[in-house]
């Protein structure tokens, strides 16, 4: 019952966050300053989520392997690789770092 209550409340609140701007901002003109500011929200949010997820993954497992995987994935992404290729490159780097790490410890 507690899980249902929490899931329903977060679901309803999340929909309100999503729907309110759709209703409010469609009504009238929006200032250029507002548009200029909001334009950067997506990349700022994704960057913050990226930093948080790297930290979380590093704390939960092998920090060096996680950082190596993200570095390899970033290099691939900067070269224009698709999301799937970035994932594959990062996973390979992560696996390689784990193998090297366990060999060194052994």
């Amino acid at each position: 019952m507690r899980t249902w209550l929490a899931v329903l409340a977060v679901g309803a609140g999340s929909y309100a966050f999503r729907a309110l701007p759709m209703l409010v901002l469609a009504r009238g003109p929006v200032s250029p300053t507002f548009e200029r500011t909001v334009r950067h929200a997506g990349v700022a949010a994704v960057t913050a989520l990226l930093v948080g997820s790297v930290r979380h993954a590093a704390e939960g497992g092998e920090p060096a392997a996680v950082l190596g995987a993200v570095a390899a994935g970033s290099a691939a992404a900067l070269r224009g690789a698709s999301a799937l290729v970035v994932l594959a490159v990062g996973a390979l780097a992560y696996g390689a770092a784990l193998v090297v790490g366990s060999a060194v410890n052994w």
């Binding site: 997820s53 497992g61 992404a77 994932l87 996973a91």
Partner: peptide, 21 residues
Amino acid sequence: ASHLEVAVPLCLVPLVAPRLR
């Protein structure tokens, strides 16, 4: 799960890295 979690940042990297140009 601890090994799978590395996939989350790897999924976000392609969204951020191209913006660095």
